[in-house]
Amino acid sequence: MTPLTATAVGKRYRTRWAVRDCSFSLPEGKVVALLGANGAGKSTLLRMAAGLVRPTTGELSVFGTPLRGRIHPDVSFLAQNRPLYRDLTVRELVRVGAAMNDRWSADRVREVLALQAGVDHDAKVRTLSAGSVTQVAIAMALGRLPRLLLLDEPLADLDPLAREETLRIIMAEVADRGTTVVMSSHVLADLREVCDHMLLVDEGRVQVDGDVEEVLARHRVLVGPVTDESTVEGELVSATRTQRQSTLLLKDAGPAPEGWAGAEPDLDSLVMGYLRASRERRASAQRG
């Protein structure tokens, strides 16, 4: 049973579509990177998956159950602004979590909080560092013993040490419980090394969806003379050209023709290629 399935999901805010016609199905037990520029629709997608926002069109299912305006019991959600009661102590906050949930493991929360150095359980949340706040928020999310963990920009605003600690908490959850994790980020470097599945959205649409290795293996970067692009086979994603040289990102490319050099792209150039392509489409659409 797939943790999260979207079928033609769209969300319109007044006149603007934040997400449109999104269809995908996430594999179980994977770490999914939800990538895209700021405002690409990542947060809206996650908030819909968490049952906070109802889609305007289409339907989302979590573990086979269609969402009906409230969170699925097996899902935990970390919002981008880390909403926590700031006047409560960590201990009180955890107790609030217990009070608001049918299934709750205080042990799990304690365990997660113990993974990091020194969050004082009697400290008020407002006195904690950004890193500690994120980690407490994640600990609260894990207290629900989720099978699907939705994290909106979990690493934003964290210093390198806190980033490492936070990733360790998330990865330990994957190792211990086989939880499926969806993490969004507008900074690719944050997720490059930890994801095994990617979902690239831009302009509210899914651009790339698949296992990272497989996606990379299906693409080629070809560099060759600008005058002779006709010999290149494959589906052109995007291209950058100088006076003499073309750099092409291709999907399902044929072998590199004479005079061209080919290589598998790295994740950065793949993502950049797709984002550039969608930006160009948008620009040309605006020109009419």
């Binding site: 919002a79 909403p83 926590l84």
Partner: peptide, 18 residues
């Protein structure tokens, strides 16, 4: 204002009970 309703809305307790 502080967004903490999101915390409440993503726990098991229903909005009405909350």
């Amino acid at each position: 204002e502080q967004g903490t309703h999101v915390l409440a809305f993503t726990q098991s307790v229903s909005r009405t009970r909350w």
